[in-house]
């Protein structure tokens, strides 16, 4: 009940700040462009867009959302109610992932005939969105303002994007397998081309491990640096 209410207010908040309009517009624009691409390159570009736009959606927005709530003292009001910090974090993650998944469903329509494993695509994307939102929360907890968040997010985002080099056949190293983004790319590729079950299982386990770690750190950092520290009170 409390959680549902928190998710509801987050979605309404995102709606009123224009997220849904912007994403509808951008997704439709992508759709038009993708429809005009040749088969073959279309799949590559679609998966690329899903990777850099959909999975990083939460990463892009969560910093500004948290810093706004902190700056406007909304967090003060929230955390003197029975709302748990865990519920606050889950609501943020779920609300943003709903938007991301809705956008993803629009973007994949031009390649729907090429998709051989839809559940893997959806579940893989969803886990990745969750990871990046939690990752953003961790950074936001340590950031002073939006530009500060950008600087940190840009650096860490670039490191996270390194496995793209393997996706684009530029460079590969077994080290990439440690990164959650390598797992994301494996699952995205598994959606359109046959992939060994072992690879898929590895990717899911990798994302689950990273998500657990990120959830733990997000909770801890938020508690320490936002709630108790200078932030909320």
């Amino acid at each position: 009940m409390r959680l549902l209410n928190a998710i509801h207010i987050d979605i309404t908040f995102q709606f009123r700040h224009g997220f849904y309009y912007v994403y509808l517009f951008i997704s439709v624009l992508y759709l038009l462009i993708l429809f005009n691409l040749q088969q073959g390159i279309r799949e590559t570009i679609t998966l690329l867009l899903l990777f850099i736009d959909t999975t990083m959606l939460g990463f892009f927005f969560i910093g500004a959302i948290v810093l706004l709530e902190k700056g406007q003292n909304i967090l003060q009001s929230l955390f003197v109610t029975p709302l748990r910090l865990s519920e606050y974090i889950i609501a943020k993650v779920i609300s943003l992932s709903i938007l991301a998944m809705a956008s993803a469903l629009i973007i994949v329509t031009p390649i729907h005939l090429s998709i051989i494993n839809f559940p893997v695509l959806l579940f893989g994307l969803w886990l990745s969105v969750i990871f990046f939102t939690l990752f953003g929360l961790i950074i936001a907890a340590r950031s002073q303002n939006v530009n500060d968040y950008f600087a940190k997010a840009l650096g860490l985002g670039l490191v996270a994007s390194l496995p793209l080099a393997q996706y684009l056949h530029i460079f590969s190293t077994p080290l990439f397998y440690v990164l959650p983004t390598r797992a994301t790319l494996i699952l995205l590729e598994a959606a359109v081309k046959p992939t060994g079950l072992l690879h898929i299982i590895y990717a899911f386990i990798c994302l689950l491990v990273w998500n657990s770690l990120a959830a733990f750190l997000a909770y801890r950092y938020f508690y320490r640096h936002v709630l108790v520290g200078t932030g909320a009170l």
């Binding site: 700040h17 224009g18 997220f19 912007v22 951008i26 624009l29 500004a64 706004l68 939006v146």
Partner: peptide, 18 residues
């Protein structure tokens, strides 16, 4: 009106890259 809306408009501005 605020930073969060700023992010949404920033995203929209990103269309210029296309």
């Amino acid at each position: 009106e605020n930073k969060v809306e700023g992010m949404a408009f920033g995203k929209l501005a990103g269309i210029m890259f296309l």
